[in-house]
Amino acid sequence: MIARARYLLLTSARTRTPLAPLAITVFWVFGTFFYPNNEVGGTWGQTGVTCCALAAWLVGAILAGEPAAQAEMATTAVGGLRGRLGLEGLLVLMVAPLLALPFLGWPLLLHAFGQANVFKPPALPGDVAGAALVHICSGILGGAVAVLFAPPRITRRATATAAVLASLLVLAGLGTLAGPIAAAQAISDAPRGTVNGSELWACLTCLALAAAAFTAAAVWSRRAA
């Protein structure tokens, strides 16, 4: 597991492709929390949805930054297509908390350094826990969508980008039924300082959709490769 994580980190650090989504993430965090008196649930609901799209972009960018030949040699080293999907799953699990961290950590850091009005009223531990769940689960779903349309399933970059965007729109279309919008709605409506059932349910739907995306990716790999 550690060897695989190190391989992914090395690949990510040695390509330029992840720079754009990382830069956008930084600016999004600064932009969101530049203004004071943010409403806790609404703000973190919005950044949770953003996390889904950013995770899709970042995972797609990292996978696109690994040349096909390098990916093929690594795939054989990890035992074939199943090992490859495991590697991609690990990437998603690394990216989702990485993206959640600045959205949660930055406002808390500002608060700790004396900017008391980042949130009004201030965020409670329960709010942070709920927000962490929403961001990570949305991120996992976004990353899974990117994996679904990554090579060898789709090799043309433009087609993959279009497919990811279309999928994100479909997820948004699910509204409050399931997925990141449902998670955002749940965190916005949750009573202060709690993680309620709606949040947990919405997060579960995100994870279920992500699992469906991975299953589809596994089936598609067998046919497309």
């Binding site: 090395l10 690949t11 040695r14 390509t15 330029r16 930054g65 690994e66 040349p67 096909a68 030949a69 390098q70 093929e72 040699m73």
Partner: peptide, 11 residues
């Protein structure tokens, strides 16, 4: 080992 070996440029 594929025919055209290519690694990430900065690797």
């Amino acid at each position: 080992v594929p025919e055209h070996v290519l690694l990430a440029p900065a690797l």
